[in-house]
């Protein structure tokens, strides 16, 4: 994938090979790649995910993601319905990809 003239390596599932490559432009390109456009609501959650990884060195499963969103953004966003609407299929996996976190290890 090319972002602003620089190559960004992705693994076969579209996760960043090197987490240091992440930037907001890269996140937008990753989202465009799967036909999404990032709104301020998405960016809020991406921020929570990146903060989670900074603190705990792991991508969250769904349950702790909901809890982290609740703590950061309040009750109305800290629920799985809201997150599923923003990131259909699997908020924990899709979110981790867009936020430049390691691929969740499939343990969940």
């Amino acid at each position: 994938m090319m972002v602003e003239g620089h190559p960004v390596a992705l693994d076969p599932e579209g996760y960043l090979v090197s987490l240091d490559d992440w930037s907001e432009r890269v996140a937008e390109a990753l989202a465009a790649d799967e036909g999404r456009e990032l709104t301020p609501a998405h960016w809020e959650i991406i921020g929570v995910l990146r903060d989670f990884y900074q603190r705990f060195e792991a991508a969250p499963a769904m349950r702790p993601l909901v809890k982290a969103v609740k703590q950061a953004l309040g009750e109305e966003k800290g629920n799985s319905i809201y997150l599923m609407r923003l990131f259909p299929d699997s908020p924990a996996k899709v979110g981790a990809r867009l936020a430049g976190l390691p691929k969740p290890t499939n343990c969940l």
């Binding site: 989670f52 603190r55 705990f56 060195e57 792991a58 969250p60 499963a61 349950r63 702790p64 809890k67 982290a68």
Partner: peptide, 15 residues
């Protein structure tokens, strides 16, 4: 090498 202390700090997020 990753430590386990971030994992321990994360326990709270898993209740």
């Amino acid at each position: 090498q990753k430590g386990t202390h971030p994992q321990l700090a994360m326990l709270e997020m898993y209740d």
